[in-house]
Design a protein around this nucleic acid. Structure first.
Length: 201
DNA sequence: ATTTGGATCGGT
DNA sequence: CCGATCCAAATT
């Protein structure tokens, strides 16, 4: 295990969001390590970005981890039933984060992971993981980390406006969502198209 | 103390 | 479009 170094995360969220495509999200579990390839992300840039939980410098118990420095997990509950996993980026005090929106299973699991809520459900991520250090490199290793894939795959990067942030005015139109074009695991792929792409003949 | 609505998802 | 399901944040 060689976690991405903290300097990877200590950059603008938009830069990191794009750079995370194709990286592996890894989680240590009782049964072993589970790995998924990141195929969809979104950048949030508080305090300016009105779509961010840290908009206007909002600083509460929930958003506190966004101010604590790059390379930590920000996990929150949404709609009463879904957890969402973010990666804190930029300098400490600058509340940027990248929402991980979809994975492609690589090893250790095979559960639906197309969309931020399903991603967390598939890996068993919840608010207990809020604040975990993704750069922990003790001999034992951390619970959750990201690393570069052994052999990089070609990537066609697409971008679009972010999903579900219509309340944010002009900020909602910024193309801060990044995804792997052609991955059937991207969240907005229709159920029918996904079935077609994943069906084994 | 009470209200409101959300960085979702699957089914209709 | 709708409902599930609950908590954070804003408001009274």
């Amino acid at each position: 295990m060689k976690p991405l170094p903290r300097r990877f995360y200590a950059r603008d969220a938009v830069v990191v969001a794009r750079a995370l495509l194709g990286m592996h999200l890894c989680m240590r579990q009782p049964q072993g390590v589970v790995v998924g390839r990141i195929v969809e992300t979104e950048a949030y840039q508080g305090p300016d970005d009105l779509a961010a939980h840290s908009a206007g410098g909002r600083r509460t118990a929930r958003t506190e981890v966004m101010y604590g420095g790059a390379g930590h997990a920000y996990v929150y509950l949404i709609y009463g039933m879904w957890n969402c996993l973010n990666i804190v980026t930029a300098a400490a005090g600058t509340p940027h984060a990248v929402l991980l929106r979809a994975l492609e299973p690589v090893s250790g699991f095979d559960a639906p992971c197309w969309g931020p809520g399903l991603l967390c459900r598939a890996l068993g991520i919840d608010r207990r993981h809020n604040g975990v250090d993704l750069c922990a490199a003790s001999p034992d290793g951390g619970v959750l980390w990201l690393e570069a894939p052994g052999e990089p795959r070609p990537l066609r990067t697409g971008r679009s406006a972010r999903i579900g942030v219509d309340y944010a005015g002009d900020w909602a139109r910024r193309p801060w969502r990044f995804f792997d074009r052609g991955s059937p695991y991207v969240s907005t792929v229709s159920a029918a198209a996904r079935r077609r792409a994943l069906s084994v003949p």
